[in-house]
Design a binder for these strands. Structure first.
Lengths: 221, 221
DNA sequence: AAACATACTGTCAAGCATGCACGTAATAAT
DNA sequence: ATTATTACGTGCATGCTTGACAGTATGTTT
C-alpha cells in the first residue's frame, strides 16, 4: 500500500526519486531517538513512578514504538542503566555549569544549595527511584553499580577541587548528597512540597555558620 | 481423609474427642498470623526490594499461604498500608523507649542519632521503599497518606515536647528525618555501608556545636 | 539504481502477580 | 454433639510486561 501515512518524515515525489523533507543521517536518527528515549524515561518515571514506567509507557512518551527500545538496548536493565548514566552526565555538567555561571562552589556552605538544585530535579528523583528498584533486579544492580561509583567520584572531585580541600574526607560530601536526596524524595510525600526548601536552607546556614571561611577542615574539625 | 497431616497444630485422640496441643483463640490466631505477615513483609522487602516482595514471597517467609493474606486484607494495597502503620507504631515506641532508657532526647543534638537508630533499621528502609512504590499505585498512595501525616506529627511531638521547644518549626525536624532517611537509603548503595555512620556523626556534631545548650532556637537562629 | 545495512513497527508467546471461588481445618456457639 | 463461624489452603482466570521475531521504512554504499 503506497498510500500509507508517514507520520514523521513526510515524503514528496520530485521526478522519479523521493526526497524526504526531514533527512537525517543514521547517526542523527540514532542519537535523537536515544535522547528522546532517555528524556521520556525520566519524564515517565517522574510522572508514574518506576514500576509504572513500563517500556510501553516510555515509548509512548517518546513517540516511538516499543520496538525502538528493543532495537537500541539489549534488555530493559541495559536501557535503564543507560538512562542512569545519561542523567549522571547531565548532573555533572549541571554542577560545573552552576559553579561557573554563578561563581559559587568555592565554599563548603555552597554545597547544599548546589546539590539541591541538581538532585531535586525530576531526573535526580527518577535516578533515586531506579536505585531503589535495582534492589529487586540483580541484573540492573550490577549494571548501575559502576556508574554509581563513577558519579560519586566525579561529584567528590567537582566539590573538593573547587574549594581546594587538603583532606578529602568523604563523610561531608556523603552527608550532603544523601541528605539532599532524602529531602528531594521526601518532598514528594509531604503536603506542601515547597516547604522542604526551608530545611535545605537550614542545612545551608548550618554549613555557613560552622565554616565561615568556607574550607572543609573548619566544618569537620 | 482423617489421616491427613496437620503441620501446625498436632492433634491427639483422647477418648472420643480431639484435643489440640496448640489451642489458640481465634483472636490469637488472627493476631499472631497478622504479626507474622507484617514482620515477613518487612523482612522480604528488605531482602528482595519492594517489587521483589510479592505476596507469595511474603507468605512463604511468614510460613502461611497466600490465602491467609487474602483473608486478612481486602487487597494488596490495604495489606501494605497496614504494614506501614505497623512499622510506624513500632517506630514511635522505639523513639520513646530510646529516650527513656538512655535518658537522651532533651537536646536537639540528640535527634540525628536517635532518628538514625530508628529509621536506618530494615523496617525503616522498607517503609521508604513502600513510599517510593506508592508513586505508581494510587490506591496505595491514598491509603498511606494519612498514616504519613500521623507519623510526622507524632515524631514532631516526641521531639519538640522532649526538648521543651517554644517554637515548633518543622524545618529542623524535616531536615533530620529526611536527611537520615536519605542516608539510610544511601547506605544500601555504597561499597562500605558502615562508613555512612561517619556522615551521621558529622550531622550530630554540627547540631551539637551550633546548639551547645540543646535548645532549638539556638540552632535555627 | 540496485543492493545492503540500519532503524523502526507490529504481533506473538511465556512468565508472573493479583484477585476470586471454592474446599478444608480450627474455633465458637447452641 | 451439632452446627455455625472464622481462619486458612489451593487452583483458576485475567491482566500486564518483557523478550523474540518477522516485516517495513529509511539511509548508505557502490
Amino acid at each position: 500500500m503506497p498510500a500509507a501515512v508517514e507520520p514523521v518524515s513526510v515524503a514528496r515525489r520530485s521526478g522519479k526519486s523521493e526526497v524526504h523533507i526531514l533527512r537525517r543521517t543514521q547517526e542523527q536518527r540514532t542519537a535523537e531517538t536515544r535522547a528522546a528515549l532517555f528524556a521520556a524515561a525520566v519524564a515517565t518515571i517522574s510522572r508514574l513512578g518506576y514500576s509504572g514506567a513500563s517500556n510501553a509507557e516510555i515509548a509512548d512518551e517518546a513517540g516511538v514504538s516499543r520496538g525502538a527500545i528493543t532495537h537500541h538496548f539489549a534488555t530493559r536493565a541495559a536501557f535503564i542503566a543507560e538512562v542512569v548514566r545519561w542523567v549522571f552526565e547531565q548532573e555533572v555538567a549541571a554542577y560545573q555549569q552552576i559553579q561557573r555561571d554563578r561563581h559559587v562552589g568555592t565554599r563548603v556552605s555552597d554545597w547544599p544549595a548546589i546539590s539541591w538544585e541538581v538532585l531535586s530535579r525530576p531526573s535526580g528523583v527518577a535516578v533515586l527511584e531506579i536505585f531503589v528498584a535495582s534492589r529487586s533486579d540483580p541484573e540492573l544492580a550490577s549494571l548501575i553499580r559502576p556508574a554509581q561509583q563513577a558519579i560519586e567520584e566525579a561529584a567528590a572531585s567537582a566539590f573538593f577541587d573547587r574549594i581546594g580541600a587538603t583532606v578529602r574526607d568523604p563523610a561531608a560530601i556523603r552527608l550532603v548528597v544523601w541528605a539532599v536526596r532524602g529531602m528531594a524524595l521526601g518532598r514528594e510525600f509531604i503536603d506542601d512540597p515547597g516547604s522542604m526548601q526551608a530545611s535545605v536552607d537550614l542545612l545551608t546556614s548550618m554549613f555557613a555558620r560552622l565554616s565561615p571561611s568556607g574550607n572543609l577542615e573548619e566544618l569537620i574539625g
